[in-house]
Structure formats: C-alpha cells, structure tokens
C-alpha cells in the first residue's frame, strides 16, 4: 500500500507571519486517483497546492511528491508533475503547435517523439486544422483542453489542476472531465480544485478545507453518508459555513 502513495503529507504547516495558511495538514493521495481538493476562498488551497508543486517551502512538516522530498528535491518534483491553472499557462501569441514545441522542449522530449505525439494529440482534440492558429484567437474551451493536454504531454506521474473548468459551457465542461477520466485511467494521478460541486462527485476522494485545516476527507459517497446530505453541495455548505 505504501508504494501506491504518490503524495504523502504529514503535519504540513505553512505560516505567513502570524497567519497560519495551512494548519497541520496530513493526508495521502494514491496512484491513479482523481483527488478533489475543495475549500472556500481563502481556506488555504492555493498555498498547499504551491507547496506540492515545489514552488514554495512549508514552515514545517514532511511532504513527499512522486517519491521526492519537498525541501531538497523540488527540481525532480517539477519534472514529474504537470500543472494547469485557471489562468492558462499557454502563450497567447504563439500558435498551438509552437506551444506544444515549447513545452516538449522544456521537458526534454525529442523532436521526433514530439512530432508523433503532437499529431496524435491534435487529432484526438479535433484541432489539427487549428495547428497554426494563435492561442489568443481560440475559444475558451479549446484553450482549456489544450492547456490540460500540454500539462500531461510529458506523461507526468501527477497533474495538478487549479480550477480548470471555470466559465465554460456545460457540454465543454463535461468533455473536459472526459479527458480527466482518460488520463486517470492511464495511471496519472489527478489532483484537482474546483468550485463546481457536481465535479466533486466525479472524484474518487475529496478533501474539504476550511480555515487552513482539512475538515473532511473521504469518497463522495461516504461524505454524503457521514453528513447525511443529498449531494456534495450540502456537504460543502455544512463544513464551510
């Protein structure tokens, strides 16, 4: 079982001056899991996410991501994860293909391999015709699909998604979740934050943060049972209010 843990967090504390943003977090995430990381605005999600991505050091506690130590091995962590945020990481004034080349280059993927993967990817996303279009001119839903695909282009062990589906129409939002399910079924762990409570239902397990602490962590089914709630929306309201 220990081997199946892709992220382990023990007694993680992060303080900014006198303010405790992460108050003694302890949790594990398993390989291939879709893990929902929920909480109200200001609950401390982004702080924890930045630490897990190796962008910020904890004040105290032990954290391992993809088997690497969060204090000493941040560069190795970065090679083994993918990240996508609501403020896309794509370059607006580069084309679709140039963005893929850029990311593939950063992660050290050979040009030959990149070309093969790029063709397959664009075919899957039905974007082959848009290869040479600038990102700036693409519809939001396309940008999201592409940003996600670029984030997993180097086959990371974990992909972190920070509110990936904001603002798109309901069909596009669900198609995005089809992509999430697909990468998870290929063994990539998905760590996702969202404000859409129906999306919390799609996760294997969900943690809910409030005021810097994890107040609940379980499968959506068990959480609903524990909180005697009809859906995840009710669970969330009970915890975060």
């Amino acid at each position: 079982m220990e081997n199946d843990k892709i992220i382990t967090v023990q007694n993680l504390v992060k303080k900014f001056g006198s303010f405790t943003a992460n108050d003694n977090l302890t949790f594990d995430v398993y390989r291939g899991e879709i893990f929902g990381f929920l909480g109200a605005n200001g609950a401390g999600k982004t702080t924890a996410l930045r630490i897990l991505c190796g962008l910020s050091s904890p004040t105290s506690g032990e954290v391992k991501v993809a088997g690497f130590d969060i204090y000493r091995e941040t560069e190795k962590i970065k090679k083994n994860i993918g990240y996508m945020s609501q403020k896309f990481s794509l370059y607006e004034d580069l084309t679709v293909s140039e963005n893929i080349q850029f990311y593939a280059g950063i992660y050290g993927i050979s040009p030959k391999k990149r070309k093969e993967k790029e063709a397959l990817l664009l075919q899957k996303l039905e974007m082959t015709g848009a290869r040479h279009k600038l990102i700036a001119g693409l519809p939001l839903g396309w940008k999201q699909k592409l940003a996600f695909s670029v984030a997993v282009f180097h086959d990371p062990k974990i992909v972190f998604l920070d509110e990936p589906t904001g603002g798109v129409d309901p069909v596009t939002r669900r198609k995005f979740w089809d992509l999430i399910y697909e990468v998870a079924s290929n063994g990539i762990t998905v760590f996702v934050t969202t404000h859409y409570m129906d999306e919390a239902e799609y996760c294997d397990r969900v943690s809910i943060m409030d005021a810097g602490k994890i107040e609940a962590l379980d499968s959506p089914a068990n959480l609903k049972k524990t909180y005697n709630a009809k859906n995840m929306d009710e669970v969330f309201i009970q915890i975060a209010r």
Binding site: A40, N41, G167, M197
Partner: peptide, 10 residues
C-alpha cells in the same frame, strides 16, 4: 459569483 466558493455564492 464567478470564481466564488459555494457558500459565498449562496
């Protein structure tokens, strides 16, 4: 309410 959590939205 875009980008606002479920409690604040209510």
């Amino acid at each position: 309410t875009t980008g606002v959590d479920a409690v604040s939205r209510k």
